[in-house]
């Protein structure tokens, strides 16, 4: 990679680089070695392995967003979700008895949805490890698994939420749900103002992952596929100029 010398633009390939671990550990080597041996012996193929990694790295919170949007628009569905979320999940295509299976699945899980009200806000955590409603929300964000979040959200929830930009008045009860056993939780946030008459599809687009963890609130003007950072090249490739 070419190094430029523009110290004000660290993000575009200049130095210093983002922190990384340069050391190759014995474990990294062992992981590769055992995978290659297994493939050579025909226990599985490269393609099968790729299929699993591609899938694992791409599953997202779309099912959870659909569940929330459907609950906002269909009171009977919402009642079914609150009565038996494990069963109601089938209606958005998630079967908890056939978990994603990825990594170390639990033998038995019960899914529960926590309904926010104007006076009650939920936020989920797993202080003992990193339990997360994975079939519904995909992989957890790295901060959810970090000791910083796991330790502090139970002790100083308002401070941690404020660090996410979510400041709630003291009149609203903040309820931290520490999922330490076999229940998995997800937050059903309040439907925001300005979404009257929206379709389920439109609503699903504003229910982002963080809204279902409880560290953010859905807003009519913020979608999951909103603007992404775009950085203009400092020295554009010449053929772009030529093409104009």
């Amino acid at each position: 990679m070419a190094h430029d010398h523009d110290h004000e633009h660290d993000h575009d390939g200049g130095h210093p680089a983002a922190p990384m671990v340069a050391e190759v550990t014995d474990f990294e080597i062992l992981e590769i070695a055992v995978r290659e041996l297994a493939i050579e012996k025909g226990l599985f193929t490269v393609d099968e392995h790729r299929k699993f990694t591609e899938w694992a790295e791409s599953i997202g919170p779309a099912s959870g967003s659909r569940l929330v949007a459907k609950a906002w628009t269909d009171p009977a569905f919402k009642a079914r979700v609150l009565a038996d979320a494990t069963k109601a999940s089938l209606e958005v295509g998630i079967d908890w008895s056939q978990p994603t299976g990825f990594g170390t699945p639990s033998d038995y899980t019960e899914f529960r949805v926590l309904e926010d009200t104007p006076t009650l806000h939920h936020v989920i955590v797993c202080t003992l490890c990193s339990c997360y409603p994975r079939p519904m929300l995909g992989h957890s964000p790295y901060w959810y698994r970090s000791p910083n979040y796991r330790r502090r959200i139970v002790r100083w929830p308002r401070q941690v939420l404020a660090e996410f930009g979510l400041i709630l008045p003291p009149e609203i009860e903040i309820r931290v749900e520490d999922s330490n056993q076999k229940c998995r939780f997800m937050v059903l946030p309040l439907r925001p103002a300005g979404t009257e008459g929206w379709t389920e599809q439109q609503l699903a687009e504003i229910v982002t992952r963080d809204c279902m963890i409880g560290v953010a609130l859905p807003r009519a003007d913020r979608k999951a596929d909103d603007v992404r950072p775009v950085h203009a090249a400092l020295r554009p490739v010449p053929h772009e100029e030529a093409g104009r």
Partner: peptide, 20 residues
């Protein structure tokens, strides 16, 4: 090293090996 991700990059590969 200043890396905050609690899991090494090879974790997904290990999981996929288990699944396969």
């Amino acid at each position: 090293c200043g890396v905050a991700d609690p899991e090494p990059p090879w974790k997904t590969c290990l999981d996929a090996t288990c699944e396969c």
